[in-house]
Design a protein around this nucleic acid. Sequence first.
RNA 1: UCUUACGUCC
Length: 269
Amino acid sequence: VFSWNVAIRGYSESENPRESLVLYKKMLQYGGSRPDNYTYPFLFKVCAGLVLRCLGHEILGHVLQLGLEVDIYVHNALIHMLVWCGELEAAHKVFDEGRVRDLVSWNSLISGFARSGQARKALELYREMEVGGVKSDEVTMIAMVSTCAQLEDLNLGKEFHQCIEESGLTLTVPLANSLMDMYVKCGNLEAAQRIFDNMEKRTIVSWTTMVMGYAKFGCLDTARKLFDDMPEKDVVPWNAIIGGYVQAKQAKDALALFHEMQASNVKPD
RNA sequence: UCUUACGUCC
């Protein structure tokens, strides 16, 4: 089982994750070793990534036969799979009826609703989690801050920001990026800039969020300055800055940048 | 050997 799991994991992280499903079938055919609680999280993750809803349910059948649904890792991976296949109600049901539940279960479900635009549902679950006395972590906060961004609810966003500072959570890069994004979407560029300035490590996402923010509000010079300072660029910041010039009806600048982008080996999308 | 989190357009 151990070697099968290593191989399945290897493929699941490769550029050809389908191979791990082929391996799983072989594993079942050879019958020498039974898949275990380490095998299934990888398989569910692959189904989630490829949105293989039917296969996911088939695999769920195997899990139930083996009685592995009570393993917390398998359970959480199952919720993750259902969420990514768009079956949020089913995920919620599994979550509610499951015998096991931890912070990862909450986070998977809450993030799922947040990502699919169901902000109210995400908030509702968060409240439920609080009432249940479960402590949030950075992952929970990313989901909640993104929810505020989606609702463009600055006050609620500030509340969560304060909550993060008071609870002693670490301002991880993704969390700081989410906060910046929330402030940008709520129109508070100053607050976003403050977070950006205080970050010790910035990723391409951090830079892009600020460039987008300034471009969105027509501060093209500021956006351009940041853009030029970016240590690396992918297609997203290029789109943002070009889009900014287009909106400002600066067609020639937009076109010039478009050619510059192609010259720098970034493919337009 | 195991599960959850960030950016544009689409």
